[in-house]
Write a protein that binds this DNA or RNA. Structure first.
Lengths: 202, 202
DNA sequence: GCATTACGAGTCTGCTCCGTATCGTATTTC
DNA sequence: GAAATACGATACGGAGCAGACTCGTAATGC
């Protein structure tokens, strides 16, 4: 079986190569345990090893500690960014807002809230978090700037505030189920239309 | 010194009464440790006892375990709700939005994010969280309904969505510093005006 | 004064975890 | 076949904490 790293990309040191299957199993076990509700700090190497069907040494051979392993594991969750069509600003915004806090991996939705304390505690993790969301923010910023340029949005629009208006309600709902009765499927449309047209009578 | 519970409210059982000072010290130590960055689960009874200058038994005499102690401690953080003046819907909203995630106790701002995972994990904690924010939500709901009644806001306004639009951006910014460059002091006004008037050109 | 309860401080057992080391075995290169 | 490295499993010493307990002391009601 081809349970090992591809021989093409390295000079191949002697001895038995590391098992790709083990790599995969460790990462998956980590994400599974997190998704099942374990906090970052409650997560133990021993639990990961057991879950992955792997010896502890196999983990320590690859990562110096829990933090490094976690970083690698979380990188797997970074989903694909949706590509706005570029026709209607409203439709593009609905697409982007609907993607807030949503990733390919369904575990991501359960894991993300557990990382909030970490992001607040450690400047490194805060930076990592910012690096991850910045590309998504950039995408939305461009859609909004396009709207201003085309005259579809107010000329005096504060783009950064507008992004907060669009993103905040979705994030809050996804992370905290802030309001139990809001319908998650309809929310993106409602949010975009609400922010576009305002709530003031006219 | 009057270091003990007031004699007026109980039949007074015999023996030395429990020290109010100890109660206070334990709660304060708990909140301090949380505010300093300890996670809920990393918090240990031993650490609390040491910090409070109190024996472990003194804690176990009062609470059955960490969870019960935490619940009592967190109840202390519930700040006062601002009272909207009732003149202008906009001004009332700015007041309420500015109060989102803000409590009298400055430690609250640092503690709240640490509770996000708990709220997601335990239905009990989720319910507790909902009970705490519901009064605040009610206040905002009334202001919005008043606006609709007075014709200041759209007649077809979805009040729940509107609350999400107003609250979400503030919460996200307070809990995650989602956008590093947004000015926290000006944000409430910006959010309210943005949501009121919309971002669409007209 | 005496029974009763609380106090701070500390001890003790049992548990979980960390990070390292050591088994016997498996897989690879030379 | 020999050397090298990886594998899962398990054992180890050490750290930290939970809870129950024990001290000698302090405060209260009768």
């Amino acid at each position: 079986m081809s349970d090992v790293t591809s021989p093409a990309d390295a000079p191949r040191s002697p001895g038995r190569p590391r098992s790709v299957r083990a790599d995969e199993a460790i990462i998956e076990a980590t994400l599974d345990l997190l998704a099942e509700g374990s906090t970052v700090e409650a997560l133990s190497i021993e639990a990961i090893a057991t879950r992955a069907g792997v010896g502890k040494a196999t983990i320590y051979r690859r990562w110096p500690g829990k933090d490094a392993l976690l970083l690698d594991a979380l990188r797997r969750l970074k989903g694909v960014q949706p590509q706005p069509a570029g026709h209607s600003v409203r439709d593009d915004l609905v697409l982007l807002v609907g993607a807030v806090g949503r990733n390919i991996d369904p575990r991501a939705a359960r894991i993300m809230p557990c990382l909030v304390p970490e992001v607040n505690r450690s400047p490194d993790h805060y930076q990592l978090y910012q690096n991850i969301i910045e590309p998504r923010r950039k995408l939305m910023r461009e859609v909004l700037q396009r709207g201003v340029r085309d005259g579809e949005l107010r000329a005096d629009l504060d783009v950064e505030v507008a992004m907060a208006l669009l993103t905040g309600p979705m994030l809050m709902q996804r992370m905290l189920r802030w309001h139990p009765e809001l319908d998650d499927r309809l929310l993106p449309e409602r949010v975009v239309d609400g922010v576009l047209d305002g709530i003031r009578a006219r």
